[in-house]
């Protein structure tokens, strides 16, 4: 309950103060260049990686990227640059 309260206050604050949401709320920021690159900031680590699938842990839920011939060009604690042919980007929310 307390966590939810905190979230709500944060959300309300960012709305009122017009702060960038990705910074305030630890949301992922995803940049894509066509189907070639996907650049994800604010992830929380790798869960699964193969040449067809990349599964990333986010602060809330997971991000699933599907495609072909995946290569992680760079991986840093909070950033990842993936190359290949990207077909799907899916958000998975475990808290229903």
């Amino acid at each position: 309950m307390a966590k939810k309260w905190g979230q709500q206050i944060k959300s309300w604050m960012t709305k009122q103060m017009e702060l960038p949401q990705d910074v305030m709320m630890d949301l992922p920021r995803i940049t894509m260049v066509g189907q070639l690159h996907i650049y994800i900031e604010n992830h929380r680590g790798l869960i699964a990686f193969s040449d067809k699938e990349l599964r990333l842990l986010l602060k809330q839920g997971q991000l699933l990227v599907k495609g072909k011939a995946f290569v992680i060009k760079t991986i840093l604690p909070e950033e990842i640059l993936l190359e290949g042919k990207i077909e799907q980007v899916i958000y998975l929310n475990d808290d229903k």
Binding site: F49, K73, I75, L76
Partner: peptide
């Protein structure tokens, strides 16, 4: 646990690139 290993590397600020499965 390859993914876990990669996570561990990135967390301890080891730069890796061209990761291929």
């Amino acid at each position: 646990g390859l993914e876990r290993f990669i996570n561990a590397l990135t967390r301890s600020d080891i730069l890796i690139w061209n990761v291929k499965r």
